[in-house]
């Protein structure tokens, strides 16, 4: 029963959003605004809360099972401290909330990404081999791109710059364009299948 109701709701909202695209009438605009701000945004925010609560539940369960207690505890402490700081001192300019973001979250998060620089270097040594013609094409294209962005004024070979810009703007762009068109066709058919109820995997279990 709930599956049938959900399918009908999905189809109604899908058809409605599709039809609203073609209308400039003030009523159509008002409905679009209501769906996007009142329904879409609000439900998405509730989904975020579900995610945060799940994070707490997973960690509390792990602590109860005595798994990684100090790590789980510090994770929970970090999670709980942010709302507490926001409620206590706000989220503006000199708030502790922003301080934690700028001095704890942002430095760590960007450093986690910086680790990738090292793994890229290691992969270049161990995995980037001209084993076949396509692999050689990939390698040459990457080398031209990197070399062209490694020199400074008047020392860069104009041939290298021209070659790298041409590679990016024509053959590389053409392949990316085909991928975009392919993804577009896939998204289009998936959206239509969702609206008409052929695609039902998102409904999950049988109840």
């Amino acid at each position: 029963m709930s599956r049938r109701v959900a399918q009908i709701v999905c189809a109604v909202f899908g058809v409605l959003m599709f039809l609203l695209f073609f209308s400039g009438h003030p009523t159509a605009k008002a409905i679009t605004l209501a769906i996007t701000t009142q329904y879409w945004q609000v439900i998405a925010a509730f989904a975020l809360i579900v995610g945060a609560v799940s994070f707490v539940r997973v960690n509390v369960k792990a602590i109860q099972r005595r798994q990684d207690i100090p790590f789980r505890a510090i994770g929970l402490l970090g999670m709980i401290s942010m709302p507490v700081l926001a409620i206590g001192w706000g989220i503006g300019g000199s708030s502790p909330f922003l301080w934690v973001f700028e001095n704890i979250q942002a430095p760590m998060q960007s450093t986690v990404f910086a680790l990738l620089a090292f793994f890229v270097a290691s992969a270049s040594l161990r995995g980037f081999r001209a084993r076949s013609i396509p692999a050689a094409i990939l390698l040459v294209s990457a080398v031209v791109m990197l070399l062209s962005r490694s020199w400074f004024e008047s020392t860069t070979s104009s041939f290298l710059l021209t070659a790298s810009d041409w590679l990016r703007n024509y053959p590389s762009m053409a392949a990316r364009r085909a991928i975009l068109i392919g993804i577009g066709l896939g998204s289009l058919t998936t959206s239509l299948r969702l609206i008409v109820g052929i695609e039902r995997t998102w409904l999950g279990g049988s109840r």
Binding site: L48, I49, G51, A52, F55, D68, F71, R72, I74, G75, L76, L77, G78, M79, I80, S81, M82, P83, A86, I91, F97, V100, F101, I104, Q105, M108, Q109, V112
Partner: peptide, 13 residues
């Protein structure tokens, strides 16, 4: 773990 916790708390707020 601290990063994950703080990031979840931040997004929630």
């Amino acid at each position: 773990y601290l990063l994950v916790g703080v990031a979840v708390g931040y997004a929630l707020v």
